[in-house]
């Protein structure tokens, strides 16, 4: 009798809508093994049936760097702020790659996984999180390549003088890049479930955005009149801080970084809210 009076305990309650920020972190934690397996799957499937295998992780940034060096340094004669040009571009490419890869891959979350999402429930956020993680490993590989060049210039040529006092900001920068890529990515992925237009916008938008970010040129190159246009991009503060720390040159100030940080948090929250709204019913519209 006693049992009948007390309120019954339900483990799962499904209702049409839930509150804005209700993310069941406990549930995501329960699926941590899935997260790791998805990261592993991404990797294994990436170089199955390739000859060079994991080497591709190095080839892509190396060739990109070489190409930028040729075009922007040799042909266009853009300054690199007295930093060795190869190192300068590699810093830009490494950071930009991580951000843009995270963004493009997470923006496809719903569309590429529609067949799985249509059959099984698991916290949808696991997929974008797994993308952030697997890209983080790629970043680590590419960053080690950057370190190789960096050590060479640091100890052999002595052309750079890093700002060691700010090195503690480095992990924070990575978190910012990941959060910005993830936030924007899940916003796009949520919006593209119904309207595919944004997908087209994103593919060329991300190319254009690279030129609006000081990846192949230093921010100091921009004239005072138009500097704000570039600085309004939250990624600018991140990449300039990165260069300032490791290469010793760059337009670092706390306002830029604070601005980047604030926008990133805003974007991430917006992303989670939109994602949360869409994940429950996207199967009906995708």
């Amino acid at each position: 009798m006693h049992e009948a009076i007390t309120e019954e305990k339900w483990d799962i309650v499904i209702e049409p809508r839930s509150s804005l920020l209700s993310i069941n972190w406990k549930e995501i934690w329960h699926y941590k093994d899935l997260l790791m397996l998805l990261v592993k799957r991404d990797f294994v499937a990436f170089y199955k049936q390739t000859i060079l295998g994991p080497l591709w992780f190095f080839i892509q940034p190396l060739l990109t760097t070489a190409m930028y060096f040729l075009i922007f340094n040799k042909v266009a004669n853009l300054t690199t702020d007295e930093v060795p040009p190869l190192l300068f571009y590699m810093a830009g490419v490494t950071c930009w790659n991580y951000f843009s890869e995270t963004l493009t891959k997470t923006s496809d979350t719903f569309i590429t996984n529609a067949s799985i999402f249509g059959k099984v429930y698991f916290p949808r956020l696991v997929i974008p999180l797994s993308i952030v993680l697997s890209n983080l490993i790629r970043l680590a590989i590419q960053f080690s390549l950057f370190l190789l060049f960096w050590f060479y210039h640091l100890f052999v040529t002595g052309k750079i003088s890093p700002h060691w006092e700010l090195i503690w900001l480095f992990p924070f920068l990575i978190v910012l890049m990941a959060a910005l890529g993830l936030g924007l990515g899940i916003i796009f992925s949520s919006l593209t479930t119904k309207y595919r237009d944004l997908r087209f916008l994103l593919t060329f938008g991300i190319q254009l955005l690279m030129f609006a970010t000081p990846v192949v040129y230093p921010l100091s190159l921009a004239s005072e009149k138009y500097k704000w246009l570039i600085a309004i991009n939250p990624f600018t503060g991140i990449i300039e801080t990165f260069r300032y720390i490791f290469l010793g040159k760059g337009d670092f100030n706390w306002i830029y970084l604070g601005y980047s940080c604030g926008t990133t948090v805003l974007i991430l929250f917006a992303g989670i809210i939109i994602f949360n709204r869409v994940e429950k019913t996207f199967m009906d519209t995708v």
Binding site: K9, W10, D11, I12, V13, I14, E15, P16, R17, F117, G118, K119, V120, Y121, K280, T281, F282, M283, D284
Partner: peptide, 23 residues
């Protein structure tokens, strides 16, 4: 709806324990 692939338009669904679906 039971396997939480999509959410209902109205109404509620409660369950005890984990739901595994084999659709």
């Amino acid at each position: 709806l039971l396997s939480r692939v999509t959410a209902p338009t109205t109404g509620t669904l409660k369950a005890k324990g984990r739901i595994a679906s084999l659709l």
